[in-house]
Amino acid sequence: MGEGALGTEYRDGEVICRQGDPGDRMYVVQAGRALVVYEANGREIQLTELSAGDVFGEMAIFDRKPRSATVRAKGPARVLTLDKRAFLRGVHEDPSLAYRILREMSQRVRRLSEEVSRLKQSPGVRAMTSDERRYVLVLPHEQAGLCELLSRALAQEPAIEVVLDRRVGERRQRAEGQTPDRRRTDRRRSAQGATIHIGQR
């Protein structure tokens, strides 16, 4: 990365911001890629992958809560830091400055809504009420044996449900009718190779 590169350079795997830390700035990826991971019970769930132009860390600026996820570089990456105060001063002067952030957040909410909807429609996952199970372990379709074993082992545990992810074929079929942008997003997710998803209910 040459003399004209703006921002901070991060090595592969280096943490850019950490879940739980105070959110006093946000970031824009200038070059390379970064992974957004959610940490729970000592495990990591990869949420998404970011590339050049993507903004992250803005949620903590608006809701003034700690970072909701950890972001780390995937390969060498360069990231520009945006000051919270300068950004909010700009938005105060001209609220339309926040338009692009709002648009990105809208797109993210839309993607999450689709994800929730897909999970609810997935065979083996039924809508649950708040007094029912609290955790869902999702195993890839080729791990049917392990799924059965875990289901039996955890049958007496009301807070955990074990399901087999049967969506791989469906997702491929659905992707054929989607826009290139959506297909790229799905490719990113499948490329993550996540074997177990844990969703808190």
Partner: peptide
């Protein structure tokens, strides 16, 4: 530099 980044305008190394 920060305001432009928020706008989606990134100054590339080809001009910086």
């Amino acid at each position: 530099v920060q305001a432009l980044a928020v706008e989606g305008i990134h100054l590339p190394s080809s001009i910086v």
